[in-house]
Design a protein around this nucleic acid. Structure first.
Length: 783
DNA sequence: CGTACTAGTCTTTTT
DNA sequence: GACTAGTACG
């Protein structure tokens, strides 16, 4: 029996069709990663393709690593020579070799969003653009979109005739690119754009890569943008063995330039494309899948498909509405605790998904309170924390003296008594000589305008010089530690001795260990390569499967993952779909949100919980939001609870009125820490809703979380009447044989009546004795 | 030049 | 609410 026998008919077709353009339309959970890995294995094993000639583009580094691992398991050799990478890291690898062919140094730096903003600020100042009227981020957004569409500054300028704002942006775009070039830097979008530029300007380089990448596969194809497609088209130009995998229903990155036409029009660009549809879902129970299908069905303009499963029905979708957001978070935390305690699942099998990063905080609070281990994916990226950016700026300065942004960031960090005026003067000098900021520093004694401040600059330049000379025989770890030591960076933090400084020192320690493990993984670790890897990590790359922790993340981050137990929190119109899209005039905006809902629902393998709150605080504003339309799109029969009759909170009719948010601004509490704020906040709520005081969690909750809270929840839920029957007679008695969804069959040993529910002791055939609550265990009598 | 406070903005999602 | 940039003052 071969490894390919485990595939279904369509999957096999996709695997065996190796030559020419192939489009695989892969529904959620239809085994597309399996297909890709088996396809690679097949190419190597059966078609004698050299692994070196295979390229697979994935969306994240994490996905790339997993793919390599799985190919390794299948083939057992050669997987390390396959080029598996994200678009961005692919481009960096190419540009590191050939950037000099398009006027950059090969050790160019990569600018992140912060750096971009710094540059844009300077640009606006120089061009006298009023940033009150036209914000930096607006301009940067416009530039980014232009780059996604491969619109050069010159083309943008041509398109801006007659439009005042566009003309301003055009000037800024032009100047911004000039500054980047001068700094020997590229932003994220440039990595793609410049690689295309390289290929177009240097046919010999393109030909070389075309020859190398004879078989190309692209995952998550629905989220590629115009520039990325062009890159792929160029690379596949010679051999045309291009296989793309995607699902138009999971296209959720339009805001980042993803062009859904790439997947919808693939067959037009490649008329001879072989198309396969993977429609069997292997991931979810039929209830989960039905819910997902019934939501996505409301989108128009999608490729019709019929995702099906032969899996069992599974439990119904849980739906809970709460009065307050913290009650929702508390419920989720205790529900996870309960599942863990009852051995229904482990922490790492649970994930909580939400629309915006800001929603993580309230969940975190409740998870801490309940003593449940968790990880938050995303939020503030590790590498964009101040202390980390400072130290990286030292490394960047040592690596690339042309990176003015890095040099200016650290010239007075830690404090060296070098102020804004001095920096401006040095910059003026640099501009007049057309040299970099750092080179100007080296000539500090020549700069007449700075007077005696020049003496403060010399030690800085000398220090960088020493670091550079040490680089020859230093490892990265030694270099970083030397920087920390010489600059006294940590020493200063230690002197501060407060909570925040402690956290910063911890982060720095983590950076050191990241450097160490990087050196362990890469034999000849260079500074440039380390900085490059650091610039391109996604939040999701950092998560570790082996940690037994609940994962908290945005719906976007959850793409490509799956979990037995999934909670979708904040299912409210105005949150999800977001207020922006609900009020947008373009209905396509809500469709994108609906695809996001589809992605979220289809992450669940067995158990899905949708929850929402009537009242929630967003940006210091209390909002009252109705239940999400996406919940309403799920047939009621699939839900375990009824939805509130009124589709709007505090307004009678829903359909015939346009969306309207009820909100009021709260008074800020001066000088309160965040924890105190929250307490005061509850107190404030209790004035309007006295019930909230009763619902306030007891401190003892930490020790025995669920038992203490058990009855409390059914009261708290806004719709307790629809909750699973807790006081009805049981359909089984002592001695009966029963069946549990996870533990299989067993014999009931004892039934004890609790205040609102029965505690049932069951002797499972395969798992031994367990005590469960009847309402949640959902035991079925076996005749 | 450095600090401490204030006002304004933000958030929808990210390589 | 949280964060940041800008400003007034020492």
């Amino acid at each position: 029996m071969s490894i390919y026998d485990t595939l279904n008919k369509e999957q096999r077709e996709a695997v065996f069709h190796t030559d020419g353009p192939v489009l695989i339309l892969a529904g959620a959970g239809s085994g597309k990663t399996r297909v890709l890995t088996h396809r690679i294995a097949y190419l190597i094993e059966k078609c004698q393709v050299n692994p070196w000639n295979i390229m697979a583009i994935t969306f994240t580094n994490k996905a790339a690593g997993e793919m390599r691992e799985r190919v390794d398991d299948l083939v057992g050799y050669g997987s390390e020579s396959i080029w598996v990478a994200t678009f961005h890291s692919t481009c960096v690898r190419i540009l590191r070799r050939y950037a000099d062919r398009i006027g950059f140094d090969n050790n160019f730096t990569i600018y992140d969003t912060d750096d971009q903003k710094t540059i844009m600020k300077e640009v606006c100042k120089k061009l006298q653009i009023d940033t009150k009227m036209l914000k930096e981020r607006t301009i940067l957004g416009a530039i980014s979109s232009a780059k996604d569409e491969l619109v050069s500054p010159v083309e943008y300028d041509l398109n801006s005739i007659g439009d005042f704002t566009k003309q301003k942006i055009s000037k800024a775009y032009m100047e911004y690119q000039a500054v980047l070039r001068k700094n020997n830097a590229m932003d994220f979008d440039d990595l793609i754009v410049k690689t295309i530029e390289l290929f177009k300007n240097c046919p010999d380089v393109l030909a070389q890569y075309q020859e190398k990448f004879q078989y190309i596969m692209v995952d998550e194809y629905q989220d590629t943008n115009t520039a990325q497609f062009e890159l792929i088209r160029l690379l596949a130009g010679a051999y045309r063995n291009l296989c793309v995998v995607g699902d138009d229903d999971q296209s959720i990155y339009k805001f980042r330039g993803a062009n859904i036409r790439n997947i919808l029009d693939f067959e037009k660009v490649y008329a001879d494309a072989f198309v396969v549809k993977l429609e069997q879902n292997y991931r979810s129970t039929s209830n989960v899948l039905d819910a997902a299908n019934s939501v996505i069905r409301n989108n128009i303009g999608r490729k019709e498909k019929a995702l099906w499963t032969d899996k069992e029905e599974g439990s119904r979708i849980h739906f809970r509405q709460f009065d307050y957001a913290y009650e929702e978070a508390e419920y989720i935390a205790f529900d996870v605790a309960k599942k863990k305690r009852e051995l229904i699942c482990d922490y790492k099998e649970c994930a909580v998904l939400f629309r915006t990063n800001a929603q993580a905080r309230i969940l975190e609070e409740q998870f801490v309170k309940a003593g449940i281990p968790y990880d938050v994916v995303g939020g503030v990226n590790f590498y964009s924390r101040k202390e980390i950016k400072d130290l990286l700026a030292y490394l960047k300065t040592i690596d690339n003296g042309k990176d003015d942004v890095a040099v200016k960031r650290i010239i007075n960090v830690p404090k060296r008594g070098i102020g804004a005026t001095t920096i401006v003067r040095v910059q003026e000098y640099a501009d007049s000589r057309n040299i970099s900021f750092y080179d100007a520093l080296r000539e500090a004694d020549q700069i007449m305008t700075i007077g005696k401040s020049a003496s403060k600059l010399k030690p800085f330049v000398d220090m960088i010089k020493v670091f550079r000379s040490k680089l020859e025989f230093y490892g990265l770890e030694e270099l970083l530690k030397d920087i920390i030591e010489t600059t006294g960076y940590v020493a200063q933090l230690e002197a501060d001795d407060d909570q925040e400084a402690k956290a910063r020192i911890e982060n720095i320690d983590e950076l050191i260990s990241k450097v160490v493990s990087y050196e362990e993984e890469h034999e000849e670790a260079s500074l440039s390569e380390f900085l490059e890897e650091v610039a391109l990590v996604a939040d999701i790359d950092g998560i570790n499967k082996d940690n037994n922790k609940v994962l908290l993340m945005t719906l976007h981050s959850s793409k490509g993952l799956e979990f037995p137990h999934v909670y979708l929190a904040g299912m409210e119109d105005g949150i999800f779909p977001s207020y922006m899209t609900v009020t947008a005039e373009d209905p396509a905006e809500v469709e994108e949100e609906r695809r996001l809902a589809y992605v979220g629902i289809t992450r669940a393998k067995e158990d899905l919980t949708l929850s929402c709150a009537k009242q929630r605080m967003i940006r210091g504003e209390t909002q009252y939001n109705p239940v999400s339309r996406f919940v309403r799109e799920i047939p009621e029969g699939l839900l375990d609870n009824k939805l509130p009759a009124s589709k709007r909170w505090n307004v009678e009719e829903y359909e015939d009125t346009s969306y309207e948010r009820v909100a009021f601004k709260q008074k800020p509490y001066a000088g309160a820490s965040s924890l105190n704020d929250r307490k005061q906040n509850n107190a404030y709520q209790s004035i309007t809703k006295p019930k909230a005081v009763l619902a306030k969690p007891a401190t003892s909750a930490v020790v025995k979380p669920f038992i203490a809270k058990q009855n409390h929840f059914s009261d708290m839920a806004g719709i307790s009447k629809g909750a699973p029957s807790m006081d009805g007679a049981l359909s089984y008695g002592e001695g009966d044989r029963v069946k549990h969804i996870k533990f299989g069959e067993g014999t009931v040993r004892a039934i004890a009546k609790g205040p609102k529910d029965y505690q049932v002791t069951i002797e499972f055939d395969a798992y031994g004795q367990k005590i469960m609550l009847a309402a949640f265990a959902k035991l079925e009598k076996v005749e």
